[in-house]
């Protein structure tokens, strides 16, 4: 495995007034890794992710993504990342094809290759018949698959996924993770937050956030050994039980 570091943070902190949403977190993510970012609701996952995506300024600490500093090179970071937010992020009143073209277009893919790429994508997703339907009329699972595909259409170095599988059935979730593996195989680093502990098992490495700080980090197998439990659920429960913040 390559050891190039794609995401680097050191004592990264974000405060909202007196509230410390993200408390001195430090970690590295290597190229091509699938990095699971776990934590209970309100633990600070989304805040940390927004800082890395350049949507939110950090209060203090160091962070860089794809080799660019989050303080100064915010806009360069954006050229190199894909992002799929917790809120549904495609335009519901545009068709599948129009959404793909639009987002491809604003990432600077030229019209000719965009045309080829979007047809390819539509075929791969098996959406030949639905390509000209409004996204709003499609089931949630499909929307999320399209969202993800759109987020990696421009071949970013890193893709950030904020609870990408919230609210979908187990089969679609499984298919979604197949897509994540495919992306990872192409060398795209995947940074994913989730509530589902079975999904945590699919990650190369996970970190578990409790009350804004990272309470544990490592391969799922190592963590299970460390906490002497059979699955990630057990690890999570042991750590999250001590949490003071909740929804």
């Amino acid at each position: 495995m390559m050891s190039e570091i794609v995401i680097h943070t050191e004592n990264l902190t974000r405060k909202f007034g007196d509230f410390v949403a993200v408390n001195t977190i430090s970690f590295d993510v290597k190229a091509g890794e699938i990095f699971g970012f776990l934590g209970a609701n309100g633990a600070g996952k989304t805040t940390a992710m927004k800082i890395l995506c350049g949507l939110l300024s950090p209060t203090s600490g160091v962070a860089s993504v794809a080799g660019f500093d989050v303080y100064k090179e915010n806009e360069q970071i954006k050229e190199n990342i894909g992002y799929m937010s917790q809120k549904f992020s495609l335009y519901e009143n545009l068709t599948v094809r129009e959404n793909i073209r639009f987002f491809g277009g604003i990432y600077g893919i030229d019209r000719k290759s965009l045309k080829v790429k979007s047809e390819e994508l539509i075929q791969r997703l098996g959406l030949g018949l639905e390509a000209d339907k409004l996204v709003g009329s499609l089931p949630l699972g499909w929307k999320q698959k399209i969202s993800f595909s759109v987020a990696i259409l421009h071949n970013p170095k890193v893709v950030f996924l904020d609870e990408p599988t919230g609210g979908v059935d187990p089969i679609t979730r499984r298919q979604f993770w197949d897509m994540i593996y495919e992306a990872s195989a192409k060398g795209i680093t995947v940074f994913v937050t989730t509530h589902y502990m079975d999904e945590a098992e699919y990650c190369d490495r996970v970190s578990i956030m409790v009350d804004g700080a990272i309470a544990a980090m490592g391969k799922p197998s190592e963590l299970k050994k460390q906490f002497a439990v059979e699955n990630m659920d057990g690890v999570f429960l042991q750590l999250a039980r001590g949490a003071k913040r909740s929804e």
Binding site: L55, K78, I81, S85, K87, S89, L90, F103, I106, Y107
Partner: peptide, 13 residues
Amino acid sequence: EIGTIEQLNVTPL
């Protein structure tokens, strides 16, 4: 409100 502006804000637009 829909959240699509966030999606635009993470692009190099």
